[in-house]
Nucleic acid binder design. Structure first.
Lengths: 384, 384
DNA sequence: TCACTTACGAAGGAGCGCTTCATTAGTAGC
DNA sequence: GCTACTAATGAAGCGCTCCTTCGTAAGTGA
């Protein structure tokens, strides 16, 4: 429960340094005066702070802006390139990776296809290829990596061990965090992919700014991710969002309505059936429309449970089927309107397939921020 | 999003003062040396801090402890009696109030019976009587009150307005916070009663120490309160925990199994029927046992929804029926065991009827803490 | 070239916390 | 009752961080 440590003078400086970093991260290059004004410090004090931050490698000078009145002011910026973050999305069929700077600006992305039943070694190798691919694209080395954040399907325990994964058999009981730590000499974070997707939507997607968000992963498998009070909600055993396990919530079998619809042509591969049904419904096929109706009926039950329990500001529809949001959104809203006490906004995901990698990066950025702004870390470390 | 204000020297002092207060609140009377050690400050600095706090009225000296080696040390304690908090539970049939010091130590309690359909004025008068009764019992005046926290049935909006109340008709559309602010010249907080009960259990009840708690209010009406990350979770529109509104969760009609059980004697008043059924089940009546089975079946569905969605550390069974926890707990556990991914602890409430008032006080204490520990409040105010 | 604007840099001062050391007020043992 | 020991007290002096103030520097616009 919070810290009971009193502050030293150096603690004050540390606080002010962090405040300066935060201001620079938020507002880009700033002059000394602007920085001083924003943080409330005097210019001379801020000068000392920036000098120190420059010496440590956290901040650098950029050329002054031209055409201003008066003597041109020095400008400083946060050196977001003094370290890099990688986000990884380990899906059934694809492994995606993205590399960003410390501000979460994405600099490179890669994708490695992989078979759901590929042996473990192959899958891990694909992860390594995806990450090193990103490094090569952005001309950085593994030594510059500060954090790798991984989103994966399945239930992950608090230590980063996979304890359940319906979609990827070889994934089960794997100490994923451990394996990745062997591969990469940096901090490794593991999260459930739906939760990271929720994070992405809450940070830079359609739910930007919302503190409480329910993210629905609708696709061939169903899942949910929760953002509560602006943070990823994991739950005590990292098993939150698993409403799909409750038969009464009617999520588990919901996709069957779309898969087994009579309007799907014979011989369609099973993974494409739902897409056919949704497309047919969009084109006015009454049989498909009925299947979609029944699908949304089921989807709405589990969703209403989450909305009634949490009263979020927004519900975001994501996952594979969210490409058909135009067919799903309105009927879902209508049903929720009837079922809920207070109707949340219901919107479609805007980030698409990159949702999870982007969320992984946002998660890593948050983690970095937390580390920086946790008191009693001692002085700021040298950056690079 | 956090503050961007840098720190002054005085800010450091403020921080240290607050740290000292916090240490004293947590550990009772402490000597200067002990305080210094705990907070990491040097003794001379801590002396200045305590001098200042004494001058402001936040801290006072107590006689030194005897029989120690060496020169006896001054001891200081937090003046929890420099202000008072009141918690109020507005139920259908009773209005309870309790008065505590700033540490949340309860000093007086009162109860005022009131009819569910009493006119609004009468109900408000009963609230006033309950509170002034507490003041009289503890020989304090309304001027010493810092905060009143109120828990009430029904859905309260973010501004403290009652927007829905099935049990108390006159309560509807009432600006409760406004009315109370007219009555009492202090800070007024309004919350839903189940959420406050959850708070109490998480702070000093059976769930003490748990960060994520689901509190089940089981009684003639059903409700739930959530503690997430140690804080009351209200939701965006203060409508969280309303799973009872979802038919598929089977909470709404669940109590009917107990009310309409054939083993209830003719002529039993409807409010006592469920109690009879539970008692009969405890005594081995097979008909009553069946009714209880069906009741728990329903109860478990909504509960499983909450557990699967949130993955709490603990589920607390509270409310009127929790007096029969011995009959309910085991069957509930069995059903959850089957339904949940990770089984939480399931325990009965230990605080009984005082749950809500106590929770209201804990809520007020938390609020006070937040206010104190929010930066940029300027210097510590004079206490009393 | 001159007035004006804005930033820079150095100097002096105040607040806060730290260390050090002589002093004080108790207990324990003889 | 005296002495040795223990632990807290109080005052002095130091260093760090931030503040304000003021003269100087480096641009723009007339």
């Amino acid at each position: 429960m919070a810290d009971l440590r009193g502050g030293d003078l150096s603690r004050l400086r540390q606080l002010n340094s962090l405040t300066a970093i935060r201001a620079l991260r938020r507002a880009g290059p700033l002059t000394l005066s602007a920085l001083a004004e924003r943080t409330g410090l005097s210019r001379p004090s801020m000068k000392e702070v920036t000098d120190e931050l420059m010496a440590l490698g956290w901040v650098e000078e950029v050329p002054p802006s031209q055409g201003t009145m008066g003597r041109p002011a020095r400008r400083y910026r946060f050196r977001a390139d003094s370290g890099y973050l990688v986000g990884v999305d380990i899906g059934g069929h694809n492994i995606r990776a993205a590399l960003s700077d410390l501000d979460g600006e994405i600099l490179a992305e890669t994708r490695q296809p992989v078979l759901p039943d590929a042996p473990l070694g192959e899958r891990l190798a694909a992860i390594e290829r995806a990450v090193t691919g990103c490094l090569a694209l952005s001309r950085t080395t593994v030594a510059d990596l500060w954090t790798i954040a991984v989103g994966t399907i399945g239930v992950i325990d608090v230590e980063g061990r996979v304890i359940y994964s319906a979609a990827v058999p070889t994934w089960r009981d794997l100490d994923l965090a451990g394996k990745l730590r062997e591969m990469f000499p940096c901090q490794v974070l593991i999260e459930n992919d739906s939760r990271l997707a929720a994070m992405a939507e809450a940070r830079r997607g359609v739910a930007k700014g919302a503190r409480d968000v329910v993210f629905l992963h609708v696709g061939r498998r169903m899942g949910a991710g929760l953002i509560i009070d602006g943070k990823v909600h994991r739950g005590f055993g990292a098993a939150s969002g698993e409403i799909v396990m409750l038969p009464e919530a009617r999520w588990f079998d919901a996709p069957e309505h779309l898969n087994t619809c009579a309007s799907v042509p014979e011989g369609t591969p099973p993974e494409d059936a739902a897409g056919h049904t949704l497309a047919a419904a969009r084109n006015g096929d009454p049989v498909a429309a009925g299947a979609v109706e029944r699908y949304v009926d089921d989807l709405a039950v589990g969703t209403a449970a989450m909305v009634l329990i949490l009263d979020p500001q927004m519900v975001v529809l994501g996952g594979g089927f969210s490409r058909s949001a135009d067919v799903l959104l309105e009927p879902l809203r209508r049903r929720l309107e009837r079922a809920c006490m207070r109707m949340p906004e219901v919107r479609a995901s805007t980030l698409g397939d990159e949702c999870v990698v982007v969320g992984a990066i946002d998660y890593a950025v948050d983690h970095l921020d937390d580390q920086l702004f946790t008191p009693d870390r001692g002085p700021l470390p040298v950056s690079r």
